[in-house]
Design a binder for these strands. Sequence first.
RNA 1: AGUCGUUUAGCUCAGUUGGUUAGAGCAUCUCCCUUACAAGGAGAGGGUCUGGGGUUCGAAUCCCUAAACGACUACCA
Length: 878
Amino acid sequence: MEKAYTPEIHDAKWQKFWDTKEIEKPEVSHAAHPEPSPESFVVMMPPPNVTGVLHQGHALMLTLEDTLVRWERMRGKKTLYLPGTDHASIAVQMQVVKHLASQGIEYKSLGREKFLEECWKWIEEYRPRIYGQVKAMGVSCDWSRVKFTMDEDLNKAVKRAFVDFYKKGHVYRAQKLINWCPKSLTVLSDLEVIFEEREGKLWHIKYPLVENPSEGLVVATTRPETLLGDVAVAVHPDDERYKKWIGKKLLLPFTKREIPIIADSFVEKDFGSGVVKITPAHDFTDFDVGTRHKLELINIFTPDAKIVKGLPQEAAQFADMDRFVARKKIVQLLQDSGHLVKEEAYKTRIGISERGGVPVEPYLSYQWFCKMDSMAQAVSNDLDKGDFKFVPHEFHNQFKRWMEGIRDWCISRQLWWGHAIPAFHCQDCQHVEVTESDLEECPKCKSKNLKPDPDVLDTWFSSGLWPFSTLGWPEKTSDMKEFYPTQVLETGFDILFFWVARMLMMGKELTGQLPFTRIYMHPLVRDEDGQKMSKSKGNTIDPLEIMKTVGADSLRMTLNALCVQGRDLRLSEDRIDTYRNFINKVWNATKFVLMDESVKEIKKVEPFDLPSRWILEGLDNCAFRVNKAWEEFRMQEAAEDVYHFVWNDFCDWFLEISKTDRKKYQPVLLFVLSETLKLMHPLCPHVTEELWHALPGVSADDSLSLQCFPKGKASGELRDFEVLKKFIVELRAVRNESKTPLSKVVNLYVPELTAQEKSLFETNALWIQSLGKGAVHLSEDFSGPSRLLTTSSIQAGATLSFKVPAAELVDVKEEKDRIKKELAQLNGYIGGLKSKLGNESFVARAPEQVVNTEKAKLKEAEEKFQKLNENLKQLDTL
RNA sequence: AGUCGUUUAGCUCAGUUGGUUAGAGCAUCUCCCUUACAAGGAGAGGGUCUGGGGUUCGAAUCCCUAAACGACUACCA
């Protein structure tokens, strides 16, 4: 065998092997499995952006999903892991626009069709790259079923969903105030607006009274430029300061319009001046006020957020001015004319366009919307009923609250790259027809003068259909029948509302079934200082780089081991090294086992002595816990469990013991190793596949991926063995502390052993001496200079005392005090147990098993108490 | 402002329903090239479990309270 695992050679080799064996195809793997289960297990890969680059978030997602997928496949379930990519409408359009601009091409000049061609070119270039990066992780997804959200069949699904929603009245077209991105020139959904706290200013501006211009009201605003669109000023109806003003008119600066003073209780009396300017066309709150008071809507901005032409009076001078330039100018002029009363620093939350990076503008516009309340209600009810669950549970409430406050979803976008909205506008009678097919003439007026809707759909509309559009919906395909609904959705919480909520609602509405029953939210990957990884900060740990240097398995193992619920994941090179070392350890352990070639076949072995029983039970216990942990998505627990079983139990103890009688233990070594490789396979598939193929009797044609995953069973710890282990640790410590070199034997005199303990020592003397590097003499001899050690912590009732000659003397008084303290503690413990057992209602109510354990604990404690007492007496004689 | 989360060794974190001596990795110190592995082995040191109260025989764990940090939500112009 080679000196170490070389990922750069073997990772790709095994990926190719799995590919040719088609282990990731549900039909193939299920048929090949020795114990196929009737259940299926389906995970839809959250599709990465088609032009994206693999980052740690993806790496974590792929790792966790593939770990679960491989595990379930090995458990015999019919397992489908379906990969794909998302067309990322706005993100990709922005990229292509930028790319074209860099070549001096203005995208609009190309026209829609040519531009879309450019997009496809762009995608054909990038898509293989992200697929290649996904594959490098060693994920076992079925590439024969790979989907792209702009595939023809998925486009069909999108159309069907849209038309279905339209017919049911969920989708409608309306003029509303929406979030407008002046940079990318499209509407955005509420979720695509990122709120940021920024240092701003609060300007206090005086609006003069029409009937008496020397008097006036002072409004406070963070956006003085919007005063051009003011239609009223509002005060609180109970505000004594302003009661007499209500109904009077103010003269608006610049436009010289007369606007009324209205009363509305939304105004906070204590904030600013207690007077609010109302600009219904440019502020969401004001829009509501405007609706309540039937106020006019005055739009003052062009789509790219410049002041419109044709405003009256002095306002005309601002035409074509950018909103921020206009703000400066207006403040300046107000100051010059004495309208500006005061200017104060103010922290304000402003909405930034997720893609454009500029402040969004509340803007009045005709858009397509999707009504959400009834769909949200249905899903919310299902959550209450427990039809689906969040892991971790914390997301339950957050989700519910969001569903309750849900607002209609603006689904149209003024972009070219994306799914076209399946609607036609009749240019003659203005009728809008929504249809899946191409339309020749207007069904109302028979006009042939039709125009397709110019907009595309929000990316997340097609993503929302992902769990079933990928299986062929709306066609009743066999995949749809077999694999829908899916079982687990694994994703990051940042897209809980963007994506998860929409899949649930759309899935339930369109298919009548929830698309999945368990939602596992993985943590955010941060760097070792807890910072978000970002290229601009330069703190990224590039998964591709890691895989190149230490292999996919080390990365997968690390991510699993660090992945706990409810806390961010801090990734560091140190941690990766730890698990790289682990893989090396497994490699070397296998090398050791294979050095003996006497056993040609791996068979299940029965325990024949204490160490073999201990390791076989340990294996069962470990397998049992791993299964349980994965059932509940406790990824860290499973990984750590395997780690410690392999390193501490198998390598540190059993391997060492086996050296004392290699022939005897070889079958056990082989069996345990092969089972362990199965256990590890979902975590680090490449290296385990490589090692498994090196085992005797394994056919080159077989894959570890299709072996039975160890079921394991729980059993208590093997006390006899633990006692001896503890004993050996003490033996080594004595050697270390007394600085006795290996060439010299440390002799331990072990007094006061029970007959049972004595025989335990005798039968296992060989390996005790070998591992403890010392001789053990069973003796009652207390004479000579001695050091007293107690291993009372081994187990209650198994207290051992032994002496080491020629070592320093320990303070007997200290030891006595320690025992006394322990006795006192134990006394309290016993008292508690007694009172608990004496409590009739406890005995009556608690399950018998619990009462029995408590009784056993009491017995054990009492025995220990006695033993300690004896020890104390013995110390008195010294 | 509201909701939720976090606070445990020098660092990063585990700790299942309350139970005897609170664990791991990394880092530190000592010893060891013992033919699987120095990317290793054997040991050691290191903790008022954020502070304060309470329940209990017993609390890192349950309750109350305070603080710090973080996340999400929200129409204070």
